[in-house]
Design a protein around this nucleic acid. Structure first.
Lengths: 147, 147
DNA sequence: CTCCCTATGTCAAAATCCTGACATGGAAGA
DNA sequence: TCTTCCATGTCAGGATTTTGACATAGGGAG
């Protein structure tokens, strides 16, 4: 039963709780993905490319909320590990579409179960009905801040 | 271009929404705090020290979900800017209690209004009643993951 | 008292990420 | 046409954060 004036304690602020939850998730994913030889940004990349093949570096960067430069580093790592492939050139435009390799698909499928287990652990802590409301609220907050 | 199968969409996962909301908040705070000459970790430090004076480096690190080493860098920056003070030695134990300077208190109070405005922008997007549920859900998720 | 365990502060090195900048390709409008 | 503007990929530099490691201080078990 939180008081109407949450300004008393820092831990009652939305920002603190958001960071706490995000940090907990990041830590759990980090630990789980390490066993699969993947980092969190790398996994996010593979997941996105599995669902929407052909995304460019810039599009992947926007989708994962990092800069193009950071994503470029991630993509190079994935390329060196032979998990994705990118053409060196393109006949139209500058965007280089990335695709999962067979090796990348296998790695993703192996890691996915571990990540999904984490998500299930998170979500199972409260009634399923609240999930939709939680997703909507998170979305609205991001929207309000111009995310 | 919406993906063909919304149910399997990555953006429907809790992790994605969490990251999105956290990224939006981080960006908004970054921009607002820059005008006050503060970074987000620095502001978090000042806010914590204002509420709980005497916290040590390790305690601040745990409270902000970063490593001791990262927090140590932040504290040095705050010390160099004369916003906090830390004794060089202590008569009991190794923990060095940090305290806000008068300068630090003024800086915090100036920056606080900007941050609170951002929080209000986020929270005002949905009924106040949901705030409690949202905070509780975020907390439960972090708890479930060992945060 | 001694040994062991934990916690803390700190150093060093690496990884990660961002800011700033530049050149190129394509589209829209004068 | 050509000129302007935007998006993309990339390079360089610096800032931030993490991992790994080490020494020290204190408490507790033996």
């Amino acid at each position: 039963m939180p008081p109407p004036h949450p300004a008393d304690d820092v831990t009652e602020h939305v920002g603190y709780r958001l960071k706490r939850a995000a940090a907990a998730l990041r830590g759990a994913m980090d630990k789980a993905l390490r066993e699969h030889g993947l980092t969190v940004p790398q996994y996010a990349c593979l997941e996105l490319l599995d669902q929407r093949p052909g995304l460019s570096n810039a599009e992947l960067a926007r989708s994962t909320f990092v800069t193009r430069q950071s994503m470029n580093v991630v993509l190079r790592g994935l390329q060196d590990a032979d998990l994705i492939s990118r053409p060196a050139t393109t006949d139209h435009g500058r965007a280089l579409p990335a695709h999962l390799t067979e090796h990348g698909r296998e790695r993703l499928h192996a890691a996915r179960s571990a990540v999904y287990a984490i998500e299930r652990t998170m979500v199972d802590t409260f009634p399923q009905r609240r999930l939709a409301a939680l997703l909507a609220d998170l979305d609205r907050m991001a929207e309000a801040l111009g995310g």
